[in-house]
């Protein structure tokens, strides 16, 4: 009797904890549901969709996945970085030019160099925001020209090459054919950097300056340093995105593409508030996968690929409108 009631009690705690988890991470849980729904739709539309499809999907989302994490970090800290795509281009061409016709060991050095470059470039963005006091959006918009120009200086047209090992670590499955290496690379790198960060004092400071700069300042949070570090981390993940571009494409591309805007779309869909201080990096990554699946599904459904841009925009608007409606009802209630 006591044993069964204890079991009941523990089950109840499990349920309450689960409910609390869902309540706290409502947006992410909803996204996972949406992801599962889209996977089901994909399977319905294309019964052959299997490991090969999943692997293609994982490789195609790798660059934008890193870009979304990059954007999420700086937006959580109350900023925004419109130069993410340009930093990716810069990292991509730098790595491609240096890796061409060089041995593997040199390639490892190149990867480290490019990541440090990303940190430095991001820190410059952050320092400019802090020193000039110009709104983040203006500074990073201007710096997007600068970094894209630098990428063009390094490589005028797509070229260079990727080290074979770099391409190998992201292609193919690991263990089960359902587990693409690209997804594992993304998950491991993000986890290794994000989890310790989130739990550190700096992680707390980042959320603090994002949610209320004045309160953070008065609580003694080192504002300038936290902001610069957040931008540096954004540069770091953008550089990872650039490396992923080189690794997935095999060459370096000097043109930023639409990665910046896609990263903003992904974080908003992923539950990061543009006002700062709210959200994480898991939601944005799931959002990136969902957006890629939408494109796949439209393709499988035989819809003209030109529709996919319009549908992506409509999803973005729809989701954000829905999110703000929910927020408004909460305020009223």
């Amino acid at each position: 009797m006591t044993a069964s009631s204890a079991a009941l009690g523990s089950r109840r705690t499990v349920v309450t904890t689960a409910l609390a988890f869902v309540r706290r991470n409502g947006w992410t849980v909803a996204l996972v549901g949406l992801l599962v729904a889209f996977l089901a739709i994909t399977k319905l539309l294309q019964p052959n969709y299997g490991p090969a499809g999943i692997q293609g999907l994982a490789i195609s989302i790798l660059p934008i996945g890193f870009a979304a994490v990059a954007q999420a970090i700086v937006v959580i800290a109350g900023g925004i970085d419109l130069s993410v795509g340009s930093i990716m281009a810069l990292a991509s061409v730098t790595s491609a030019v240096l890796m061409l016709n060089n041995d593997d060991l040199f390639g490892v050095g190149v990867v480290i160099f490019v990541l440090l470059l990303g940190l430095a470039v991001g820190a410059i963005n952050g320092a400019l925001v802090v020193v000039t006091k110009v709104p983040d959006i203006v500074v990073t918009l201007a710096m997007s020209f600068v970094w894209a120009g630098a990428a063009l200086l390094i490589l005028n047209t797509p070229g260079g090459g990727a080290a074979p090992w770099l391409m190998a670590i992201i292609s193919g499955p690991l263990g089960s054919p359902w587990l693409p290496k690209a997804l594992i690379v993304l998950a491991v790198i993000v986890a290794v950097v994000w989890i310790p960060l989130r739990r550190s004092t700096f992680g707390l400071a980042m959320y603090a300056i994002g949610s209320s700069p004045l309160a953070a300042l008065r609580s003694g949070v080192p504002m300038a340093r936290s902001k610069i570090v957040a931008y540096a981390l954004t540069g770091f993940f953008s550089a990872l995105g650039g490396l992923a571009l080189t690794a997935t494409g095999g060459v370096g591309a000097p043109v930023p593409g639409s990665y910046t805007l896609q990263s903003v779309a992904a974080i908003v869909l992923g539950g990061v508030s543009l006002a700062g201080g709210r959200g994480g990096v898991v939601g944005p990554i799931i959002a990136v996968i969902i957006l890629a699946l939408v494109r796949t599904d439209l393709f499988f459904a035989g819809v003209d690929p030109n529709w996919s841009t319009a549908v992506q925009g409509a999803i973005l608007i729809g989701v954000v409108t829905f999110g703000s409606l929910v927020a408004m009802r909460k305020v009223r209630a």
Partner: peptide, 23 residues
């Protein structure tokens, strides 16, 4: 009306318009 952030709203709208025009 829906208090969507202008950056996001107009960005989404540019995607919608561009997509519709491509079609």
């Amino acid at each position: 009306v829906f208090k969507v952030h202008p950056l996001i709203m107009t960005l989404g709208m540019s995607l919608v318009v561009l997509g519709l025009m491509s079609v």
